[in-house]
Design a protein around this nucleic acid. Structure first.
Length: 756
DNA sequence: GAGCACTGC
């Protein structure tokens, strides 16, 4: 094995201005354009440019506590390119939108590049293993934000290393552990699972190297993990971190992990690793994407989308179109407008095949976008953000690009992207404690991600429905990390469970606002999960921390033990922790409402879920039965899985599974014990206006609730979705006296408000 | 009369 050993001559590097080390690789085209069947993986592996850098990678990991792998165009360069551009103005007949055509290439990250970066990352595991990092029972770990990524990446790496998945290479995600203790030395897992593992082993002692993939996504669990790993590094200088990130976040990652100035090498160990992170930049060449901007801001982006589609269809050679819009409504409006256009103007829109894509669609409907485009047709995929982040699609698109498009002589696949410049994003208001979905401008990072979709199969074009001036001067560089847009109760309790008491002083990659922190502490205190000193209470706090659920749901489960309805409540908890059991059936609402009525309980949604679950079991978990009743079969299967997991944990916590045999009051009381803070009272003579007890916010029952239009006097809700109005989701009727019973401490000062 | 996207031993 030829890799660098201490004492021999060091490999040479290019020092860049950031003090890190840049390794450039390029000339990917020979391997990217060939097919990559599984037949000769080893041969391909050697042909890939990353193979050449094996030695250097091992050197960096050996000598730096943290290595940051940047997987796009080189840092610093991307931002300079736009200023150097020249433009030609381009105007279109019959079209209100005017586009500027950038003559230089801005975005060059494409299937080949994405693939190279992935390959680069995954080759690292083999090199690390060969270099001895997995010896002596130590494990090399790689975290991913999504389950599907864990499964597919581990499969790929196992294949490449020629081992069975579950032996040397394994993976762990919730509900699935495909590792063999003592055998598995390269382990893939979701970042959430790794955080859970810290509850057993706070220093993660069995791991020698931990790679955090997709760190630039800045999801809550990734950010928690980064903060915790930094803490662990201080105690375990022998631990090595590899952070894989997009360019845009690389600098932030570097700064976060750069502890070289603050502290000296640990005493008596002059041989410790360099505490300044190394930056490893991987570049590959791909297809160019030409960026077009509108000349003037558009007033109605949906109409502009439609005219741009028609324009592409009229002017551009064959190739599918991918449109990014904000939500289902936008998408349906655009499709309707396109249909009208087809009706009035045959020529412009001939051959267009519009296909919607959003999470609410069934799996089958989503997969329509993968069917080959019929000859003479042009697919127009109108999508939400799902096409930007979802790995299901990422995996399928890649597969599609290589396996299908290559076979079809590269005439197929997405070549044109239309970017509305907006997406729906979650925001959290700690004052009202409400999370809302708001249409907001995307970041430059997202815009690049979106345009990158145009060049997966061959050179493409991206039409941005905003001005270049806006892009350069006003568009934010990167999105706000999820941590700063979310309710933090679950985050706080996870840290508390790991013994981190000073939550406000925790070293986060991006610290959340103190108000959001304080609100989370307040809520946990009111649930009696934290005590006066903000420490976990015993046993409640510790029990809640062990349940992988929202703390309010966990509290509800604990209460059900005393109320003798844990069997029912665990079912409800499982349903509440998934998105929705119902399919979204547009056009057949009436039928769906009727189906819902078959399960509806006067007490509300929670009790309705019990009926749904019972029906599912009686149908012997039939997918047909789900289809008939407008229930999402995937969701129902997940409910069963979560329920089994909760049952196991509950048993460990000393909760005995007991049914209340139809005593629905017990069930509602248990729900109240968890969700008392979400109590609402109907405003008299108000036609469905409720006021929250805690903040006197005006809220309504969500139209998907069985209590919609029923408007009982007192309810508690699970969550609020805030769109045009503030809607309560998952609502159950209560007796207001239960509130003071469940949480006297919380309601003591509010007695006057309540007129029980 | 309405739902961006992920996730947890």
């Amino acid at each position: 094995m030829a890799f660098w050993k201490p004492g021999t001559e060091k490999p040479s590097f290019v020092e860049d201005e950031e003090g890190g080390i840049v390794l450039m690789s390029n000339n990917l085209s020979s391997s990217s354009s060939s097919s990559f069947g599984y037949a000769n993986i080893e041969k391909q592996r050697q042909r890939l440019p990353v193979y050449k850098y094996r030695t250097e990678i091992l050197y960096l990991v050996e000598n730096h506590a943290t290595t940051i792998i940047v997987g796009e165009t080189g840092s610093g360069k991307t931002t300079q390119i736009p200023q150097l551009e020249r433009h030609t103005t381009y105007s279109f007949l019959q079209n209100p939108a005017m586009f500027k055509l950038s003559t230089s290439r801005i975005v060059l990250f494409l299937a080949s590049k994405v693939y190279l970066c992935k390959r680069f990352g995954y080759a690292v595991f083999q090199y690390l293993k060969e270099a001895g990092w997995a010896e002596g029972g130590r494990v090399i770990a790689c975290t991913q934000p999504r389950r599907l990524a864990v499964q597919s990446v581990s499969k790929r790496v196992a294949d490449e290393m020629g081992v069975n998945l579950g032996d040397e290479v394994g993976y762990t995600i919730r509900f699935e552990d495909h590792t063999t203790s003592g055998v598995t030395s390269v382990k893939f897992l979701t970042d959430g699972v790794l955080i859970r593992e810290m509850m057993e082993d706070p220093l993660l002692t069995k791991y020698s190297v931990i790679m955090v993939d997709e760190a630039h996504e800045r999801s809550i669990s990734t950010d928690i993990l980064l903060g915790l790993l930094k803490k662990i590094q201080r105690r375990r200088p022998e631990l090595r971190l590899i952070i894989s990130s997009a360019t845009i976040e690389a600098k932030a990652m570097f700064n976060f992990f750069n502890t070289s100035k603050k502290r000296q090498a640990p005493e008596g160990s002059a041989q410790g690793p360099n505490l300044e992170p190394a930056i490893l930049s991987v570049e590959g060449r791909g297809f160019s994407v030409k960026i077009h901007y509108v000349e003037e801001p558009v007033s109605d982006y949906i109409r502009s989308v439609v005219s741009t589609i028609l324009l592409i269809n009229e002017r551009e050679p064959p190739g599918d179109v991918l449109v990014f819009l904000t939500g289902q409504d936008d998408i349906e409006t655009a499709i309707k407008l396109l249909a009208e256009e087809a009706h009035s103007n045959q020529k412009n829109s001939s051959g267009l095949l519009p296909l919607p894509l959003y999470s609410g669609l069934s799996r089958t409907e989503q997969e329509l976008i993968f069917t080959p485009t019929p000859r003479g047709k042009r697919k127009v995929i109108l999508s939400t953000n799902i096409a930007e982040t979802s790995l299901t699609l990422e995996a399928r698109l890649l597969c599609y690009c290589y396996c299908v498009a290559n076979l079809m002589d590269k005439t197929d696949g997405v070549v044109y992207v239309i970017d509305s410049g907006f997406s729906k994003q979650k925001f959290y208001n700690p004052i009202s404690d409400i999370e809302s979905l708001v249409v907001a401008p995307i970041s430059k990072a997202s815009a690049r991600q979106r345009s990158g979709r145009a060049g997966r199969v061959r050179p493409g074009k991206c039409y941005r429905l905003y001005t270049e001036d806006y892009f350069l001067k006003e568009m934010p560089g990167e999105g706000i990390p999820e941590m700063q847009r979310s309710n933090l109760v679950s985050t706080v309790i996870q840290l508390k469970a790991l013994g981190i008491d000073n939550i406000l002083g925790f070293d986060w990659p991006s610290p959340p606002s103190p108000q959001a922190m304080i609100r989370a502490l307040e809520v946990l205190y009111s649930l009696q999960i934290l005590d006066d000193d903000a420490k976990l209470t015993s046993p409640t706090g510790f029990q809640v921390a062990e349940l992988p659920l929202d703390p309010m749901i966990s509290k509800m489960i604990l209460a059900s033990n005393e109320l003798g309805c844990s069997d029912e409540i665990i079912t409800i908890a499982a349903v509440l922790s998934i998105q929705s059991v119902w399919v979204i059936a547009r056009g057949v609402q009436k039928e769906q409402d009727e189906a819902k009525l078959r399960f509806a309980a006067a007490e509300g949604d929670h009790v309705t879920f019990l009926n749904v679950y019972k029906g599912f079991l009686e149908s012997k978990k039939s997918s047909q039965w789900c289809y008939k009743n407008f229930l999402n079969y995937q969701s129902m299967k997940k409910v069963v899985e979560i329920r089994d997991q909760l049952k196991r944990i509950a048993r460990r916590l000393g909760i005995t599974l007991k049914s209340c045999d139809g005593d629905i009051d017990a069930v509602r009381k248990a729900v109240t014990a968890g969700f008392f803070a979400n109590a609402c009272r109907l405003e008299p003579h108000s036609n469905g206006v409720f006021k929250t007890i805690r903040g006197s916010e005006e809220v309504y029952i969500h139209p998907s609730s069985v209590l919609f239009r029923v408007n009982p006097k007192w309810v508690v809700y699970q969550s609020i979705v805030s769109t045009e109005r503030q809607y309560m989701r998952n609502v159950v009727t209560i007796n207001p006296s239960w509130l003071t019973e469940a949480a006297p401490h919380f309601y003591q000062n509010r007695q006057n408000n309540m007129s029980l």
